[in-house]
């Protein structure tokens, strides 16, 4: 109880004295939701360069990636933040799953080890975030416990959340299902890969952080 009050007080004080441009905006979600693709989209749109490597192999991002001082403009408003791309959060990691992608056993085991560390780092960083975008693959069942746990935790820590239902360019995409699963949150359907509806996403980002 005392710890919770301390956390809320610290968050309030840090927000009160935070310098403009030092907001930490985290990209969270399960593996393969498209966090890095979205990070690259944001970074390319406003800095002209990509941020990390996106891949179809799960757990491609295994370390926290930070892009500092991103300034975005929308409808005459400006916003500055540090973008934090995090490794996907999972409850299980099996090196044998990587073998299916043609990886050698030694490499697969190394990747699995790094992926477990990545999940731990993602969780450790939760407390440092000022706002979080949860990136979900809209072609996949949104009711997974990982999604519920991540979102529930952000709620418990009073961190503002925006849900992104990514991959709307795919036929299997079910934006409505994501909206139904999390009715208390704003959900923006986008295709980070093709930039579809990205303007709407930036508008919602302003709403989230301001």
């Amino acid at each position: 109880m005392i710890n919770s009050i301390k956390k809320i007080l610290n968050r309030f004080l840090s927000k009160l004295f935070k310098k403009r441009g030092h907001i930490k905006l985290g990209l969270y979600g399960p593996p393969n939701g498209g966090k890095t693709t979205l990070a690259n989209r944001i970074s390319k749109d406003w800095l002209g360069e990509e941020m990390g490597v996106a891949s179809t192999v799960p757990h491609e991002t295994r370390e926290i990636q930070i892009k500092e001082e991103i300034h975005i403009k929308s409808n005459g408003k400006e916003l500055s933040f540090n973008l934090v791309d995090t490794p996907g959060i999972a409850t299980k990691i099996d090196y044998e799953d990587f073998l299916k992608f043609g990886m050698k056993e030694k490499d697969a085991k190394k990747r699995a080890k790094e992926a477990t560390k990545g999940v731990i780092d993602s969780i450790k960083w939760l407390d440092d975030m000022d706002a979080v975008i949860v990136v979900l693959d809209s072609t996949v069942d949104p009711y997974s416990q990982v999604n519920i746990t991540i979102i529930g935790n952000l709620q418990a820590r009073n961190i503002p959340v925006l849900l992104v239902a990514n991959k709307t360019d795919l036929k299997k995409s079910k934006l409505k299902k994501v909206e139904t699963a999390f009715p208390q949150y704003k959900v923006v359907g986008i295709s980070a890969k093709y930039g579809t509806n990205i303007e709407k996403f930036y508008d919602e980002l302003f709403e989230l952080v301001s």
Partner: peptide, 11 residues
């Protein structure tokens, strides 16, 4: 809720 996250971390 915090324990669920801790469960994932320790796992």
């Amino acid at each position: 809720k915090e324990e669920e996250t801790e469960l994932i971390r320790i796992t």
